[in-house]
Design a protein around this nucleic acid. Structure first.
Lengths: 234, 234
DNA sequence: CGTGTTTTTGAGCCAGATCAAGTACGGTGG
DNA sequence: CCACCGTACTTGATCTGGCTCAAAAACACG
């Protein structure tokens, strides 16, 4: 399919100070002094198309910046199929989440032959040491927003109308007591799920008829979470 | 639809130190000393269901944390319809992007009656002063990742198969010279766009037949960007 | 030059869109 | 208090884009 055939190759210790993509890459703004202690352990790697950079759930030991090529982040669905949740290319950073989480949230796989730089997460964290708690809290917010975006794509933009509605109901119930949740207009419901108002309405009506949800009051629903979950986890 | 009918109401200056959601909110980790100078200008506001917190493109003067209720971030499509790209609830932060950008990227509208705290962006930035450039670069990465996620939902998960393929081709061409781009397998193409391999293949074949794209070599395409853009911008 | 893989094409079907009524509901004014 | 109106929700009928299943064609590789 593509010229490069080897799986992964070390192509040198990165020369960060003279990096061609440094202007736009992660450490663009960092001045030389702070940098000195860090660029040592940075390796430059080659991945052939189709090879894995890291697996979902693997221990997050490194961040990566893409120098050339195209990398996909995939989320595996229960049925074994995959949904690609993002494409990364030159200057994008892979695995930012491992600054906050122990493990990678996706599998990262090269779609085209890719050159990347690998930065040990420990070295990056050391650089952030002066920066304390607010920094961490802010980053946690970014992380959360991004995780939500991933869920949005994999849970709310995938599957049948019925499944999407159920996943949203479960999501809304997550932080409410008693398996209940407050909904909103059918029009907004459709816009969330990428469906028309009518389809959203039909799906809700159908769930009511089947006794999977019960309308406590206007747009407040009690959900049979166990059965609902069984439907979408199938 | 919902009990509250007023549009927006000031409900006091926030008492951050005794905030009930402080554990999980943005400033959870910040110690009291640094906090003293900041909690003064924080207002607490009420928004009725359906009311706007900020408009897309408006000057980003404040961040908001949600205390109660549900808020949608919407992206307006050229045809006037909206696609909701995220839902925010208790402890989520709205408008984080205005730490990096002058304007808000979405419209934020309450879906349910919502209480929010408003934090002037200047005050937040002041708190970050000690933290210099790397901090900014990192946050820019988060911002970019999240913007990509938004585009993913609005551009690659919306519309007909044909439109989705075209938007991906244009996206891939963006950073390449000569209106050309490198593609990858039809299977991955489908997984990116939420389509089956067959549908992705058909859409590509159709574009070739219509002369909108030309295959230079295996999976390298030259695109008639102008005409393609005209199709999806319509 | 066969063999396995990927891409393309075909035929039929179905979920969801579209177009169009009908119904329930909250608000308003008589 | 009730008749009226506008809005949101529900339901129905039809149409169609994309999925599924299946096979052929193109291609990569040994």
């Amino acid at each position: 399919m593509t010229p490069v055939t080897s799986a992964e190759a070390w192509t040198g210790t990165a020369d960060c100070l003279n990096c061609s993509i440094r202007q736009s890459a992660l450490f663009a703004g960092l001045q030389e002094p702070g940098f000195a202690g860090v660029h040592r352990p940075i390796d430059q790697l080659q991945y052939a198309a189709g090879t894995t950079i890291y697996q979902a759930g693997a221990e997050g030991t490194s961040l990566f910046t893409v120098r050339t090529g195209l990398v996909k982040l995939t989320h595996y669905l229960p049925d074994g199929s995959q949904r690609i949740v993002r494409l990364l290319r030159k200057t994008d950073v892979l695995g930012l989440e491992c600054l906050l989480s122990d493990t990678y949230q996706h599998a990262a796989i090269a779609l085209q032959p890719a050159e990347v730089c690998r930065l040990p997460v420990g070295a990056v964290k050391r650089l952030l040491l002066g920066n304390q708690r607010l920094f961490h809290a802010l980053m946690a917010q970014w992380y959360r927003a991004l995780s939500d975006a991933d869920r949005w794509i994999t849970e709310l933009s995938t599957g049948t109308a019925r499944e999407r509605v159920i996943r949203l109901l479960l999501w809304l119930s997550e932080h409410e007591a008693g398996n209940s949740c407050s909904l909103f207009s059918r029009e907004d419901l459709g816009a969330v799920l990428g469906l028309t108002t009518e389809t959203a309405s039909r799906a809700m009506a159908e769930l009511k008829r089947q006794g999977l949800i019960r309308e406590l009051s206007l747009n407040r629903f009690s959900c049979d979470s166990a059965r609902l979950r069984a439907i979408v986890d199938a």
